[in-house]
Measured scan of single mutants.
Amino acid sequence: MAAAAAAGAGPEMVRGQVFDVGPRYTNLSYIGEGAYGMVCSAYDNVNKVRVAIKKISPFEHQTYCQRTLREIKILLRFRHENIIGINDIIRAPTIEQMKDVYIVQDLMETDLYKLLKTQHLSNDHICYFLYQILRGLKYIHSANVLHRDLKPSNLLLNTTCDLKICDFGLARVADPDHDHTGFLTEYVATRWYRAPEIMLNSKGYTKSIDIWSVGCILAEMLSNRPIFPGKHYLDQLNHILGILGSPSQEDLNCIINLKARNYLLSLPHKNKVPWNRLFPNADSKALDLLDKMLTFNPHKRIEVEQALAHPYLEQYYDPSDEPIAEAPFKFDMELDDLPKEKLKELIFEETARFQPGYRS
């Protein structure tokens, strides 16, 4: 834990890192770190609560700039109880001085990944967590956004079992017609939660990839272990087919990539493993919904509104309290091709509203 900075004593240090967030945020305490930044909790002297502050230093890398800009653009436009918001952003007053960006968010005690390492969940908890994931996802999908990296560590939890989806750095506007060349190379989302079509096709992607990830998360809540822990690309596919069985001819016809289709045709026939054999203690309604989410063919996979209306979630289902976005989200430009200098300018502009004396 960093010592509390005395008023006016300059930035606090946390594990050798400068955290320049005073005077409003003090009493910093280390939480963890990701690929390009550290997260601390801090005391907000204005709202009198502890908050989470993520320090991001992305400006050396085009990919990190892209992810940072995506996350900020999306989260500043989203407003939903099951999606983490941005409360404040701290950065230098000029673009030349801006080396880091500090993002202030609600402090959540833990995440689903940490929880599943230590606790076996009751059916009631599984049901409530799944409902909140789908409630947040309904809003995301209504904005025409794909999260693309749903996994237990991106689901934040607090002691009252509130759940918030975080990390929109890989999110995209849904565009089933656009052929994202190089899709697989830039697709760094965790393999275990990846839909089979991501490994088999490169053309376009749809909201059904997020539903697949939610199915993987439900299976993990039922058993405290990942359902498809593939060691590499082909191993991942083999794990999936080992449980779902061989795809039907109709399902194979959806695979545009001939090499991928021929690979699947070359494999020995596998039978589907019954879900109640894998999860003998699970609620039968939970397994019915799991089956509809972990469907090989993305066109037959359940959609988020149908999933919310499934009998497993009937005690929570309330369409009048499951809000959607006001308007579909649009990125003005494809960020993939922009140089990091341009992305830095866009991050600077996007964060201006939090600067003292800002006038829109």
Rank of each mutant, 00 (worst) to 15 (best):
P176R: 10
N87H: 09
I86M: 05
Y317D: 04
E12R: 10
A327G: 02
Y43E: 10
I217D: 06
V188P: 04
S320Q: 04
V101F: 07
N154E: 08
N201F: 04
D336V: 15
N276D: 09
Y139T: 07
N297P: 03
N201M: 07
N154Q: 12
Q17L: 13
A352W: 07
V304G: 15
H239L: 14
R353S: 14
Y128C: 13
L289T: 05
H178W: 10
A195Q: 08
R359C: 04
P274T: 14
C166E: 07
L146R: 10
I217H: 08
N224R: 08
N276Q: 10
P247N: 02
Y36G: 15
Y139F: 14
V46W: 12
L75Y: 05
L184G: 07
N154L: 12
H269P: 06
G357I: 10
E81N: 12
R191Q: 14
I89F: 13
V145G: 11
P152W: 03
F78D: 02
A2S: 13
L150V: 04
I140D: 02
Y131K: 07
K117V: 08
S202P: 12
N47F: 13
N144E: 02
G10Y: 13
R301L: 03
K300V: 11
Y233W: 06
L338C: 10
S223I: 09
S142V: 06
S122L: 07
L76Q: 14
G182E: 12
K344W: 02
A189G: 06
L200R: 11
G357K: 05
A2T: 14
I243Y: 01
E322V: 13
R359M: 15
L156W: 00
L313R: 10
F183P: 12
M13K: 15
G22P: 00
S208T: 14
G215T: 07
L146E: 10
L237N: 03
I211H: 11
S41L: 12
I133M: 08
C161H: 03
G204Q: 08
S246E: 07
P196H: 13
R24E: 08
I83L: 06
R24Q: 11
Y193V: 11
A92Q: 00
D332G: 10
E71K: 15
L146W: 05
V214K: 06
E96N: 06
T110L: 10
V173A: 12
W212Y: 09
D106R: 04
V49I: 13
G22C: 11
Y205A: 06
G32F: 03
L343N: 10
L121S: 11
V46E: 11
E322I: 01
I302R: 08
P339R: 09
Y358A: 09
K344A: 05
P23Y: 03
R148Y: 06
I324R: 05
L218F: 09
F168I: 14
V104W: 07
L137N: 00
Y193W: 08
T110N: 12
H80C: 01
L222A: 07
I74S: 11
P298C: 01
K300N: 15
T26N: 14
G136M: 03
A92M: 03
Q97C: 11
E60S: 09
E350Q: 06
L157Y: 08
N238Q: 05
L265N: 08
F354I: 14
G204W: 14
Y30A: 00
V14S: 03
K207A: 13
Q249I: 07
L252A: 07
A189N: 12
N297M: 03
R24A: 00
L146Y: 05
L76E: 03
T26S: 15
L237K: 02
F168K: 03
I256K: 07
L267P: 06
E334S: 04
D149S: 03
K344T: 10
R261N: 01
M13I: 15
V51C: 14
T159W: 04
H61P: 13
G182T: 09
T190W: 06
V188K: 04
L346C: 08
L264Q: 14
E326Q: 12
S202D: 11
A42V: 09
Y131W: 01
G169V: 14
I165P: 00
F129M: 06
Q97M: 09
Y263K: 07
Y317C: 14
L244Y: 01
K207I: 09
I243R: 00
S266K: 07
P298G: 08
L112E: 02
L241S: 10
R191L: 14
L241W: 13
E334A: 02
R191E: 10
Q355S: 09
R353V: 12
Y64G: 15
E303C: 02
Y25P: 03
R77G: 07
P93C: 01
A171D: 09
R50P: 14
G16H: 12
E345V: 14
R70I: 01
A309T: 15
K114E: 10
T185M: 06
H310W: 08
L278Y: 09
Y30R: 06
T110K: 02
S266Y: 01
T63D: 14
A5H: 05
G16F: 04
Y139E: 08
F329D: 05
I165T: 06
K164W: 04
A5P: 10
E60F: 09
T68E: 14
L28D: 00
D332C: 02
D124S: 08
K342W: 00
K54G: 05
D177A: 14
K330E: 06
H61V: 03
A260C: 04
V273D: 02
L346W: 01
L76V: 00
I84V: 00
V18P: 01
N87G: 09
I74K: 09
D235L: 09
K285A: 07
A3D: 13
R261K: 10
K344Q: 02
N158R: 10
L116D: 04
A219P: 12
P328E: 00
Q315S: 04
L163T: 03
T160P: 10
I198A: 01
G22E: 13
G8L: 09
S122W: 08
S248H: 10
A6F: 00
N271D: 00
S320G: 09
N123W: 02
M38K: 15
N224W: 11
D291C: 06
A189E: 12
D44M: 13
I83C: 07
A92N: 01
F78K: 04
K73A: 11
G10L: 12
V188T: 06
R172N: 02
Y139K: 12
K99C: 04
F279E: 03
M98D: 09
A171P: 05
F279N: 05
G169Q: 05
Q306H: 14
L338W: 01
I133T: 00
T118M: 10
K259R: 11
I56A: 14
Y317E: 00
V145M: 09
F168G: 02
E305H: 05
L264F: 03
W275T: 06
S360E: 14
L287P: 04
R67T: 08
R277W: 09
P328K: 12
D332S: 07
G245C: 14
N47P: 13
I243W: 05
S153E: 07
H180W: 06
A52K: 04
H310C: 04
I31T: 00
N158V: 07
D177T: 04
W192E: 08
F168P: 01
N201A: 09
I126A: 06
S223N: 10
G136P: 01
N123V: 02
N144V: 11
H310M: 12
P196W: 03
W212C: 14
Q105G: 07
L278S: 07
I324K: 05
F296H: 05
A189D: 07
T181N: 12
E71P: 15
T351Y: 01
K164S: 10
L289C: 08
A92F: 01
A219T: 12
Q97T: 12
H125L: 14
T190C: 05
M13Y: 04
G32I: 13
M221T: 06
F59N: 13
Q105D: 14
V101D: 02
V21I: 07
H61I: 05
N87F: 05
V46Q: 08
N262Q: 11
Y263P: 03
K259E: 00
Y43W: 14
R91G: 12
Q97G: 07
S223W: 11
I56S: 15
G34Q: 00
V46T: 11
N257A: 10
A325I: 03
Y139N: 14
S29R: 13
D167E: 11
D321V: 14
N27T: 06
I211Y: 07
R91Y: 02
R277H: 06
P356W: 01
V214Q: 09
S213N: 11
R353H: 09
Q66K: 15
E197K: 11
H310G: 01
L338P: 02
E341Q: 11
G136C: 08
F129V: 03
T190D: 07
P356S: 13
V173P: 04
H141Y: 08
N297Y: 15
